[in-house]
Each structure stands twice: as structure tokens, then as C-alpha cells.
Design a binder for these strands. Structure first.
Lengths: 154, 154
DNA sequence: GAATTTTTGTTGCGTTTGCAAGTTTATTGG
DNA sequence: CCAATAAACTTGCAAACGCAACAAAAATTC
């Protein structure tokens, strides 16, 4: 018990060390990833929020602004502005939902699909670099643990 | 090879699925964590950047603004403003470095240490909730993989 | 079925952020 | 040593963000 590694990551413990705090490491990795990916995406003139929305819409379009906001964990008002920007850039269109008069659906345009394809091509090499050294097993376990973290925060 | 889980996370692959993209899951977990922790920290009137800097300074103070910026992966100019805010709140002090006339050192004040202690107490329960279900082994492996991701981005 | 509550989206406004351009101090190359 | 380059901040400015207040539609309650 004395040398439980989980104690080192516990902010309430005396032996706390930032390096063992999962969310410090998560934040660090994400931040570094964002810096790199942002620079790459600049070549095709899209920013990170746009890239995130494109990926989500790529799986299922249309989606409502609220769904997008929840899926990407971005405040609704912020998602509004992201969609506005994407509309101006011609990547998506907005249309009121037929069933529910409150919801606004967001639809990927052809240009949006092209940009998404371009972004995928562009970011694939970085992905391969990042997971290099990860076995299939490790990779699967990583995803599983990230899902578990997310669930534990619900 | 056909069902290599790593292919599902590859933006360049046909079979790409957002749910298998590690940085999507990372971003999601971090964002959700930030939302929760931000609400908790509001009770003691500090924001997330302040909390991050306090944690880092808690391990080693003084540190230069540049070091803080690199450690926390936050732009230098942004770190400037964070330190300014923290100074106004009395959490840190600034002092020019004796050896190098360019660098500005940041020192934790007594009030800063108190706030850090309070923040730790406050966030400990969430930490325990988040890692619940993680064995010592899993926890260690998680940290190791996050470090590997970070290194692969270097 | 009318009133209340919840859900979904929208907009105004102040704060925070990041880029770019500048200043000052160290370091490096002739 | 002097010039040129690099490193470590610093600040102005525009863009992005989040909160809060609002509007409109749907669901719930009585």
C-alpha cells in the first residue's frame, strides 16, 4: 500500500507528484498534439474546432448543433460560432429539423466532405507517428482506458 | 491485418472511426474533466490555468515564465497573463533572475501555497472517482502510455 | 387543455487567448 | 572585442470563448 502508484497521482496525498497525475499527462499530450495538428491544418485553412466537427459529421450527417456540442464537449454557444464560421466557409449548411421545431440540423456540404478527406490525408502521418511502438493490444487497452476515464467522469 | 484495431483510428484509412481515434478520446476526457474541475475550483476562486501553474510551482519554485510555459504547454504570452492574474491575486511574485537578466522568475507566496493545498483537498475526491476501477497495474500502464504518446509527439 | 418546466437554440458582452511585432539581454562566429 | 543571431520576455490587437440573459418550441404536470 505504501507504494501504490495511484497514491502518487492523488492530489490529496502527501506523496503527490504532478508527473503521476493522469490529467496533467492527458492535458500535456493533448496540448502538444493540438499545437502540431493546428500547424498542419493551417495548410488547408481549417482550424481545430472545424476539424473536430468535420470528423464527427463525417460519421453521421446531419446532426443537430446540440448533439455536436455534446459529442465534442464544446459549449453550445461556442459551437454556434464554429458552425457560423464553417457556414461562411461553405463547409456545412443549416436547416431546421422537420420533427422538432427547436433543433437546427447541420449538414456537410460537398466542399465539407472534400476538406474532411484532405484533412484526413494530412493528419494520417502524424497519427502513425504517434502510435508507433503501440502494439494492437496496447492500443486497444489505451482506448478502453480512455473510455473508462470518460465514463467515470459522467 | 484486416482487423487491426489501429487501422480504425487511422484518419487515412477507409475504415476510420472517430471512436477509435485516440486524440478524439483524449480531447473528450480532458474537456469533460476540465468542465467539472472548473466548477469545483470556482469555490476557492481559482481558474484552471491558475491551478495548473500552482501544481507545477508546488513541485519546484521558483521557475521562469518560459519554463512554466513549456511545462504546461501554454503559449508564452498567455502564460504572461496568467502570471499577471496570479500576481494580482497574491498567489505568486515575480523577480528577475540573478544569473540571466532576461528571465523572470515566478515564486509561490504563502497564500499561493495555501490555495494549492486547498485545491488539492478539493480535487482529491474527483481523482479517486476517476481512477476507481483502475488496478495498480492498469494505472501504471496508463501513465506509461500517455508519456509515450507525448514523447512520440516530440 | 392550460400552465409549468424542460429542452434547444440564439445573441450581447466582457474575459482570455494567440499572433505578430518589438525590446532587452545572452550567446555565437568572425 | 564587435557584429550577428538567438533567447526570454513584453505588449497591442483582433479573434475566440464562456457566461448569462433571452426566445421559442416541446414535454410534463395537474
Amino acid at each position: 500500500m505504501a507504494d501504490d502508484p495511484r497514491a502518487l497521482g492523488d492530489p490529496g496525498s502527501e506523496s503527490f507528484r504532478v508527473d503521476s497525475y493522469p490529467f496533467y499527462l492527458l492535458n500535456r499530450a493533448v496540448s502538444r498534439y493540438n499545437v502540431i495538428i493546428e500547424a498542419q491544418l493551417r495548410a488547408i485553412e481549417i482550424d481545430i474546432p472545424t476539424w473536430r466537427v468535420l470528423m464527427v459529421l463525417g460519421e453521421e450527417s446531419p446532426r443537430s448543433i446540440g448533439q455536436l456540442s455534446k459529442t465534442a464537449v464544446i459549449h453550445l454557444s461556442t459551437m454556434m460560432r464554429i458552425i457560423e464560421r464553417m457556414m461562411k466557409a461553405g463547409l456545412v449548411e443549416r436547416a431546421p429539423d422537420a420533427q422538432d421545431g427547436r433543433v437546427t440540423n447541420v449538414i456537410l456540404t460537398d466542399l465539407g466532405r472534400e476538406k474532411l478527406a484532405a484533412a484526413r490525408k494530412l493528419t494520417a502521418p502524424l497519427y502513425r507517428q504517434v502510435i508507433s511502438g503501440f502494439s494492437q493490444n496496447e492500443f486497444t487497452r489505451l482506448l478502453e482506458m480512455l473510455n473508462r476515464l470518460h465514463a467515470n467522469l459522467g
